[in-house]
């Protein structure tokens, strides 16, 4: 990994930890941005970790860009020495795979897809060498995923699968982006999954939908009253396949203010994870039982 610093105009420092995506690069991004937050450097207004990089926005009237850069470089040195540990949350996200709404949408945009004759998830299963869509769903929902970035639009999490690289699911984006995606669609592009927090344009393949709102600007949903966006970079997600009856039940519970996401505090260790990925994931998922 090679760290690269660059100024984004006179108000940002942009730091790329690695050109390629990896959990190591993501962890370093989380670790340094955490240190920046704790250091309370004057003039800093935004601290944004993202996959294998991060950016800091600052007021150059309060701190000279060169001084800002030096502060970050010294925090990088400190982060290298720190342990690869993280106190975070694991959150279960119920998913109705092959739901009627994303299916209707993907049929409307078939001419923009690599395989106009099938559905997105059939295509993804085939090019990732799964015999059936059910096998693909098992791979997608079996291991947990890291929220490696929140953004694009408000509250939208990007997720990185916590398996070794040969097992990571990869699909290209649509040939041309759609102009419509249902709210709460589970999408996938490149090696990242995402949850569309709002309805709108999108280029990721659509696999299913969750009945659990993740962004509520009106802050009326019980668990989004404190803050309108559910996810933070560093959260861990477990997809939980559900059927239509469970979907309808959760939707009704959300509307009635009865639904609470299944969510636990956990300690994550990257070193232990790397020693035994499957064993460590099993341990993580026990927290949700």
């Amino acid at each position: 990994m090679q760290t690269r610093y660059s100024f984004g105009g006179d108000e940002h420092v942009f730091v790329e930890l690695d050109e390629g995506m990896s959990l190591e690069a993501f962890f370093k991004s989380l670790s340094i941005t955490g240190a920046v937050r704790e250091a309370q450097i004057k003039g800093v207004t935004e601290i944004c970790p993202a996959n294998a990089s991060f950016q800091i926005k600052f007021d150059p009237d309060l701190i000279h860009p060169d001084d800002m850069l030096r502060e970050l470089q010294s925090l990088e040195v400190a982060a290298e020495k720190s342990e690869h540990g993280l106190q975070t949350r694991i959150i279960e996200v119920p998913v109705l795979y092959r739901d009627p709404w994303t299916t209707e949408t993907l049929m409307r945009f078939r001419e923009r897809h690599q395989d106009p004759s099938g559905t997105d998830i059939e295509y993804a299963a085939r090019i990732n060498d799964f015999a059936t869509v059910d096998d693909f769903i098992e791979a997608h929902s079996g291991a947990p995923w890291f929220v490696s970035m929140v953004g694009f639009v408000a509250g939208l999490p990007f997720l990185y699968q916590m398996v070794d690289r040969p097992r990571q699911l990869e699909v290209p984006k649509y040939l041309r982006p759609r102009t419509d995606t249902p709210k709460l669609t589970i999408g996938h592009g490149g090696c990242f999954s995402c949850i569309y927090s709002v309805r709108g344009a999108g280029g990721y393949q659509m696999f299913g939908i969750t009945p659990m709102p993740i962004y509520d600007p009106r802050q009326e949903i019980s668990y989004l009253r404190e803050f309108m966006a559910l996810f933070n970079p560093g959260d861990i997600v477990k997809w939980q396949p559900i059927d239509r009856a469970a979907y309808d039940q959760i939707e009704a519970d959300v509307a009635a203010g009865r639904f609470e996401p299944k969510m636990r505090q956990i300690d994550f260790s990257l070193d232990e994870f790397n020693r035994d990925i499957d064993g460590y994931n099993r341990k993580l998922l026990e927290a949700l039982r």
């Binding site: 984004g8 105009g9 108000e11 940002h12 993202a50 294998a52 490149g190």
Partner: peptide, 21 residues
């Protein structure tokens, strides 16, 4: 192209976009 970046030469591993970039 690095892992996770996508196949077009204008693609990067998704990153934050600074205001004004």
């Amino acid at each position: 192209q690095p892992f996770g970046a996508g196949s077009d030469p204008s693609n990067i591993v998704d990153a934050g976009y600074p205001y004004g970039s």
